[in-house]
Design a protein around this nucleic acid. Sequence first.
DNA 1: CATGCATATATAGGACTGATATATGCTGGA
DNA 2: TCCAGCATATATCAGTCCTATATATGCATG
Lengths: 199, 199
Amino acid sequence: MDVKTLCLGVLSQGDASGYEIKKAFEEGPFAHIHAASFGSIYPALEALRGVGQVACRQLSQDKRPDKKLFSITEAGLAAFEKTLLSEPSPDKTRSDFLFILFFAQHLPAEKLARLLDQRIAWYRACLERMDDCAAQNGDAPPGAAFVRGMGQAVYRAAADYLEQNRAHLLGRVEKDHQSRDRDQKTIPPHASVSGAAAE
Amino acid sequence: MDVKTLCLGVLSQGDASGYEIKKAFEEGPFAHIHAASFGSIYPALEALRGVGQVACRQLSQDKRPDKKLFSITEAGLAAFEKTLLSEPSPDKTRSDFLFILFFAQHLPAEKLARLLDQRIAWYRACLERMDDCAAQNGDAPPGAAFVRGMGQAVYRAAADYLEQNRAHLLGRVEKDHQSRDRDQKTIPPHASVSGAAAE
DNA sequence: CATGCATATATAGGACTGATATATGCTGGA
DNA sequence: TCCAGCATATATCAGTCCTATATATGCATG
């Protein structure tokens, strides 16, 4: 699913500028589904215009920079619906947060606690935003409502897990640090290279 | 969190070849955390070797192709632990599945049902694999166990949501298709552009 | 009054993915 | 028996995508 297809999808829901498309992937209805950056969106829109799948008109705005409003053409809609029928490639997740947490015993306890708290707050904020979106937009098409519900279920599970296991993780890591400190007084420091956790 | 850092993280858990590192991100302990491809892993290992953060020795294997076993050096471990302290960039998700589902009303009902069933089966298979991993590896370091638990909680929530809302979505989409068919008999087809899915 | 933020478009350089090439041995089906 | 396909294993390239930056304007906040 390349960025051209993502843009067509957003435009099938209504006209938008490149900036607005970006926002749809940041805080809009596609926030938890797919990421896309300016560096791919603007060239994608230009390419779509080149093959006649989107049309573009310039808008001069008061007290705002000019805007290019894009709309999907019939050709674009046809291409989009065809792409929708192809097999989805597997999901790709890239979470620095989880990767760092994997090595929790390498982190200072305060840093770890802050990391967890920040993430919990982030999930809660997302959930609130999605609730608002659901309340405002009660008549969303079935697919959109379903996907939003799934996002909420998953984020809720993540936030709950973090809250319920925060203390346990911090306790285990703290114990690890203590036993490592003890070990370092009795055995040479280079005896355990890879952090040899254990106790 | 670039691929070099990801490789260092895997190697901090034990020696591995490029191929084994890839597997760690596909079905291993990092499966639901981060994705990485051969095209980035092999150059990353080569670059790390160039700056002395990993060491490499060739292994001739019986009935298998030769293998390059990489191990992290003290310099590599130091660099890795320093990187761990930097702020994680926000998570990036790329889910073709959810994007397609967003436009469920553009899909034939059978296709939609198959999509949902496949995904439910995929989640259940992942959960089983993670259960096995947890059973085999009861003494995992605290961070690894925590992250695995979070993955399980999230995948379980996703699978449950799909199962519990599958029928409702299919019903709503079916109803949409019917009312659209009815409309097309009474009003001109080009009256609604962005819903013109038809069949 | 300055710094920063939101709106808005654009691009260059580098990072990463997906596909492909090469080589070997094993396994399951025709 | 033979062949196709799969798992193991490394490597590279073309194309895609992200990060950071540049530019411009108005508004808010200290």
